[in-house]
Simulated scan of single mutants.
Amino acid sequence: MSVPTNSATWLLESGGRFVVQEAPFPSPGDDEILIQNKAVAINPMDWKIQAFGPHLPFPSHYPFILGSDIAGEVYEVGKNVTAFRKGDRVIGMTNWFLTNNTRDSAFQHYSIAKTSVVAPLSENISFEAGSVLPLALSTAAMGLYPAGRLGLPLPQTFKPSPISKIVLIWGGSSSTGSAAIQLAVASGATVIATAFEKNHEFVKSLGVTTVLDYRKDTTIYDLIKAVKETPGDFVGALDAIGEDTTWRACAEVIKGLGGGHVVSNLPTGFTDVPEGVGVVGVDDTAHLASNKEIVEGVWGHFIPEALKNGYLKPVPEPLVIGKGLEKIPDGVDLCRKGVSAGKIVIGL
């Protein structure tokens, strides 16, 4: 039987341009799955690598294939894989960031993913909608659950009992923010969030108790007041945007509450942190698969069941800009300009 051909959207050089070219056809290892991609999503990391490549230590070589979010059909499974079979509809997180190998990248027709970060996708959810979830859920999980961060209990696939814990999520309508809200609510926490005013109803639909517009001059004061008026113990803030201004805003809220933790999607660069405030960057999402308790609780248990019963929503809305690998550069450019309450997706 002849081996299928593979193509990918390659970033030719650090800070360079994207070009569609032939790519190696990968084979899965013992605990891996080869997925024929039907949709891929664009993340801010993708445009930042293209724009700031000369100043970044990753990827380690060029040309390279980027991308982390995939949805598609299982094409081949490794010899130890029993939970999936050829033809299954799935979503998954590729992990080139850890391996520096293009077989583990998303922007191609065939990608490799570890079984621990792959989940079934039911027929009532499109590949385009499913593709918005993988990296966002993984990143949010690494902010919410590890000890020393926000330390919430793992999520449940049905409405959990309240745990009297309050979490602030800055950027609730973003991809990671909407994933973090759903996970935190599924853990039984009370969630207070920020979002652009036109996205408040969307954020409320995910289960937040209070949502405030981050652009107002009184936002810091209003958030402090909201936390104080909400029953429960405040465990900290998750900065889902990951910019210098957003983690600092979270830190000001924490300072006003007497101290505590900020977990930020900005991995490093925390200077002049207010006294009594601890800031931790989520720089280890790529290592989620090695955190057995969290990856099994989130990917092994919560995502499959919650997608199936509708408790987990595939949000934000996929903004599908076309079909084909040649559309990926356009998607990266649009992501760089900024997207509100949506995630750019390309069909394949």
Rank of each mutant, 00 (worst) to 15 (best):
L334T: 01
T271P: 02
L168F: 12
P329N: 03
E293D: 14
S264M: 11
L266I: 12
A193H: 02
A179R: 02
A119P: 04
T209F: 13
M45V: 15
L98T: 08
P57C: 09
Q36R: 15
I35L: 11
V273C: 06
V74Q: 03
S105I: 08
D244Q: 15
E22R: 15
P329T: 03
T190Q: 08
T157G: 14
S14G: 12
F158S: 14
W96N: 11
K337E: 14
A41W: 00
R248Q: 12
F97H: 11
A195E: 01
N80C: 12
L152R: 03
P57F: 10
G172S: 09
P57E: 11
V211H: 05
G322L: 13
S7D: 13
P153T: 08
L121T: 05
N265P: 06
D30S: 15
V132N: 03
K198F: 12
P318F: 06
G53V: 07
N309M: 11
L334C: 04
A240P: 03
L266N: 12
K337M: 13
T210A: 08
I220C: 11
W247L: 05
G297A: 09
N291R: 15
P28C: 11
K343Y: 04
L144F: 03
G269E: 07
V74N: 04
A289M: 15
A129D: 10
H261Y: 11
L223T: 05
L206V: 06
S290A: 13
E305G: 08
